[in-house]
């Protein structure tokens, strides 16, 4: 059964603690989102788990094998994309992927078939081009393809869609959603919508400390959702919603047909607000104004400059 485990992982650089006693264990299939602002310790954790850096204390285990003791065996069934890596710039995309296949014991015929499959799924750039001549997004897709080439049971991704355009991001997300059914994926991301779509579980980290490790479903239950967007089929003025005045704090028109309602936060208010909106006019959509993870992010990490920046990026 695929597994990823951190046992008290700690990394210090002089007096600076980049990661402080991080512990978690995941087994089976699924996707875990690793969230936090820049410098929170996300990449450090992933580097320690994949042997790219050595922990000051603690251990990282992949599929039960200690990365510090036997990195080859620990990484054998693990695909990684850490820090937008760059393959050898003088190698073509095809050679890059074939080299990885050879290192990982994938028979060449099987590897070439898999490369063709991934080229189609990820819309890879022409593989006869040298990777040094590719754009950042094209190179990132080649790197993602190489992490999936040997069909590893564990996949560790550090901001995998960084540098990709929206269409490419969607393609990668779709692949991850498929993969998580039979693979264990740990991915860091700045994009909360991406984590919401792909992941079943989320870890929040800040200042090197893990703040929360919970299923997205449970985070949703806990989140204090205070805003809802309502889209009507016909133009509606905020004043027309006078009947819900006692339930809400404010109603703002986002467009002639779309209103944002800020309410008290009691979950039982939401169905009542919807009921009264329907009475005013035909409702096309009724959804939380913010993502569940955004609420949790803001509550745990704060809506300061860092938090706001990341939300803006999304």
């Amino acid at each position: 059964m695929p597994s990823i485990e951190a046992r008290g992982l700690t990394k210090r650089y002089g007096g600076f603690i980049a990661l402080d006693d991080a512990s978690f264990k995941f087994e089976g299939s699924g996707a875990i989102g690793y969230l936090g602002p820049n410098g929170a310790g996300k990449t450090t954790t992933l580097k320690l788990l994949t042997g790219l850096a050595r922990p000051t204390a603690g251990r990282g285990l992949l599929n039960g094998v200690d990365i510090g003791r036997d990195p080859k065996r620990a990484l054998w069934d693990v695909g990684t994309v850490i820090e937008s890596p760059e393959p050898y710039p003088w190698q073509t995309g095809q050679r890059t992927l074939e080299m990885v296949a050879a290192f990982r014991g994938v028979p060449m015929r099987e590897a070439r078939a898999k490369i063709k499959e991934l080229a189609s799924e990820l819309d890879l750039p022409p593989l006869d081009k040298k990777t040094g001549a590719l754009s950042k997004g094209q190179r990132q897709r080649v790197v993602i393809a190489s992490s999936l080439l040997s069909d590893p049971s564990v996949i560790i991704l550090d901001e995998p869609t960084s540098g990709l355009d929206p269409a490419e991001r969607i393609a990668v997300r779709n692949i991850l959603v498929q993969l998580k059914r039979e693979h264990l994926i740990l991915m860091s991301s700045h994009l909360l919508s991406e984590v919401t779509e792909v992941c079943d579980r989320a870890i929040f980290i800040n200042h090197g400390k893990i703040l929360l490790n919970e299923t997205v479903q449970n985070i949703a239950k806990r989140a204090v959702d205070t805003q809802v967007d309502v889209e009507f089929a016909v133009p509606i003025h905020p004043d027309q919603l006078g009947s819900i005045a006692e339930l809400v704090r404010s109603v703002v028109a986002l467009s002639p047909t779309k209103l944002r309602i800020d309410y008290s936060g009691h979950s039982d208010a939401r169905p009542e607000i919807l009921k009264r909106c329907v009475a005013v006019g035909p409702v096309l959509s009724y959804a939380s104004a913010t993502l569940v993870l955004e609420d949790a992010y803001l509550q745990l990490i704060g809506g300061g400059v860092a938090g706001a920046n990341h939300l803006a990026e999304d």
């Binding site: 790219l52 080859k72 890596p85 393959p87």
Partner: peptide, 11 residues
Amino acid sequence: KTGYYILAQPV
């Protein structure tokens, strides 16, 4: 950033 690519292989 080549190291991130090559050193993360099981070699």
